[in-house]
Design a protein around this nucleic acid. Structure first.
Length: 590
DNA sequence: GTCGAGACTTAGAAATATGCCG
DNA sequence: CGGCATATTTCTAAGTCTCGAC
């Protein structure tokens, strides 16, 4: 375990607690300048108002009807509410899926009265049309709200945030990340999820555990209700929790990313990754050596580590079958997920990966590997069925146990952080040659993009992508014409001014020149933007920026390149990375 | 060693806000 | 100044990893 980040300013000031404490107490110090608590203790004082509950169900107007088999039918309140969840989603592809429909129907029937259940036995015979239209109408109304109405709503929301969105943690007033209890609805899993469509039930105060300090004012449950439990556990960071009925998982109310608790953890994460930097050569030498081991388990571990390091694959924990979509990571790869090519496209020993990873995002890649890795893979695949585990003698527990013996704090995911950050740093060095601001930004985005590609961070292309590209192209053409015109005018003005000492004419030349240059600049800016956008069509940059790239690399780059920080980090991101912005100098090296 | 619960980070989609252009 | 594209925020699912019971 790390006690303190490697090159952190001196944090442990136990020898002079008084001035330190008073500053901290008065809120004059930033958290990254404060002393840390002993291992495992996350806070000494925690006070909050409890989570915010969504409004109760508001019954539909009397005149709205549901039809079963063409017959008008008045549903009871509970059945009506759940039916509306489904009706609201009718425009979504989800509601056409067999699994979604069956799951919904099964759970919906549980909410029905006995009579309703006797009657309604076939989802195909259900007509939610009026519910659906009612919902669409509501959405339309929401869209058409006047400025004044929007303002009123905004203020009401702000009031809720002011009251429930903050807590006191030690001497800091901190923003809470998700202080709103998740509203009920139909479960929307990603990809081919076996539980899609199941009813996600309404959470009541009786389901919620509150965590706060003993000496704090315990939050009041909503009128007429009780909390499930109030506990005072300062070894955890959550303020409230409940169990989700669909997956049986615990959900938490936690602090915002700009908080002390989250920030410290983030900082520590990058410090561990930097430690890996200085040890990675040795670790690579070792797993290369392990490829020859007599122990099959060791060899499998070595190949897995090779993939995790080279391709930034996730660890790949086992998953409970039938509970989630069928996705894999490194350790859970199956024989069917890779194909071996002795030679492909002029390269030798090529492994072709094709599998669904986290969030059912497809990982597809063709990678040349070393002979030894290739031979090992052949061996691991011998006499196996497509559905068998590739690494049958390995799991994430064993892998991480081994890693933590190589370096304290080292786990599989540290390689992702390390490789992402080091790639950004290298790319920024290679790509940036002092140019115009838009070109510098393009370089930054390209470096970011290299990381996003490494980590396989994808997105659905924006709906209006083609249109917006075409618009931009048209604008570029327009600007080009304008530039030609501007150039011609400049030439003309120069000609007129030549051999003429009239300062007025000289002045005109200057003016035309400026106009031409401005035009040129704008054209360049647009062309750069077009390139950037095209390259970014199916790549999501935000995930790596937020979770994998040591912000100090970016802050140092901005300082060196004289780029405004807000060109690469928006307000939220600057808040989250305040610690890095505060402490980073030009010479920072990851 | 194995297993499941628990706690926390990482993820892309969807909703909402912003701002730009005619 | 309104409509639309883009940027930001919100939402919550889906991972990783640790720990304690057996």
């Amino acid at each position: 375990r790390l006690l303190a980040p490697v090159d952190a300013p001196l944090l442990i000031w136990t020898s002079r607690p008084t001035p330190f404490l008073s500053l901290a107490l008065r809120g004059l110090m930033s958290w990254w300048e404060e002393e840390k608590y002993e291992a495992g203790i996350k806070w000494k004082f925690l006070e909050h108002k409890g989570p915010y509950f969504p409004p109760e169900y508001n019954p539909l107007p009397e005149n709205l009807n549901f039809y079963y088999n063409g017959e008008k039918l008045k549903l009871g309140l509970r059945a009506e509410e759940v039916a509306l969840y489904f009706a609201q989603m009718l425009d979504h592809e989800y509601t056409t899926r067999e699994v979604f429909r069956n799951n919904f129907f099964k759970d919906w029937r549980k909410e029905m009265t006995l009579e309703e259940r006797m009657l309604i036995t076939d989802l195909e015979k259900c007509d939610f049309g009026e519910y659906h239209n009612f919902h669409k109408q509501k959405v339309e109304e929401r869209k058409n709200r006047t400025k004044e109405e929007k303002q009123v709503l905004k203020e009401a929301n702000q009031k809720i945030t002011d009251e429930y969105g903050f807590c006191m943690l030690d001497h800091h007033r901190e923003r809470i990340g998700n202080f709103k209890i998740e509203p009920p609805g139909l479960f929307r899993g990603r990809g081919d999820h076996p539980k899609q469509g199941l009813l996600k039930k309404r959470i009541r105060p009786e389901d919620v555990i509150i965590n706060c300090s003993k000496e704090s004012h315990v939050p009041e449950p909503p009128a007429g209700h009780q909390w499930k439990e109030v506990r005072h556990d300062n070894t955890v960071t959550w303020l409230a929790s409940w169990t989700d009925n669909v997956q049986g998982a615990t959900k938490y109310v936690m602090l915002n990313a700009n908080s002390k608790l989250k920030g410290e953890k983030d900082w520590e994460k990058y410090e561990v990754a930097r430690q890996l930097k200085s040890r990675v050569d040795g670790i690579r030498a070792q797993y290369k050596d392990d490829l020859k081991s007599k122990q099959m388990g060791t060899r499998q571990r070595a190949v897995a580590l090779y993939f995790i390091d080279k391709l930034a694959l996730r660890a790949g924990n086992e998953k409970e079958e039938g509970e989630t979509a069928d996705t894999v990571g490194c350790c859970s790869l199956r024989v069917e997920h890779i194909m071996l090519h002795d030679s492909l496209d002029g390269e030798k020993c090529v492994v072709e990966f094709d599998f669904l990873g986290k969030d059912c995002i497809r990982y597809y890649n063709k990678v040349p590997v070393t002979k030894r890795v290739f031979k090992n893979l052949k061996l691991f695949m011998e006499n196996k069925q497509p559905g068998d585990d590739l690494f049958d003698r390995l799991n994430t527990g064993m892998l991480n146990k081994h890693l933590s013996s190589l370096m304290p704090g080292l786990t599989a995911k540290v390689f992702r952080t390390y490789n992402a950050s080091i790639t950004l740093q290298q790319q920024l060095k290679e790509l940036s040659n002092g140019e115009d601001p838009p070109e510098k930004l393009l370089s930054y985005n390209r470096a970011n993009r290299a990381v996003a590609i490494l980590c396989n961070h994808q997105r659905a292309p924006p709906k209006s992508f083609e249109q917006s590209m075409a618009n931009l192209q048209a604008k570029i053409e327009g600007r080009k014409e304008q530039l030609t015109l501007a150039k011609a005018e400049l030439k003309k003005a120069k000609k007129e001014a030549k051999g003429n000492s009239d300062t007025k004419l000289q002045f005109v030349v200057e003016k035309k020149k400026k106009a031409m240059q401005r035009c040129e600049e704008q054209l360049l800016k647009m062309e750069v933007q077009a390139t950037d956008r095209e390259e970014n069509k199916e790549i999501a940059l935000s995930t790596s920026k937020l979770n994998y790239l040591d912000p100090r690399i970016s802050v140092a780059w901005c300082k060196n390149m004289e780029v405004q920080l807000d060109k690469i980090y928006n307000k939220t991101q600057r808040d989250k990375f305040a610690w890095a912005i505060h402490m980073t100098e030009k010479d920072f090296e990851f």
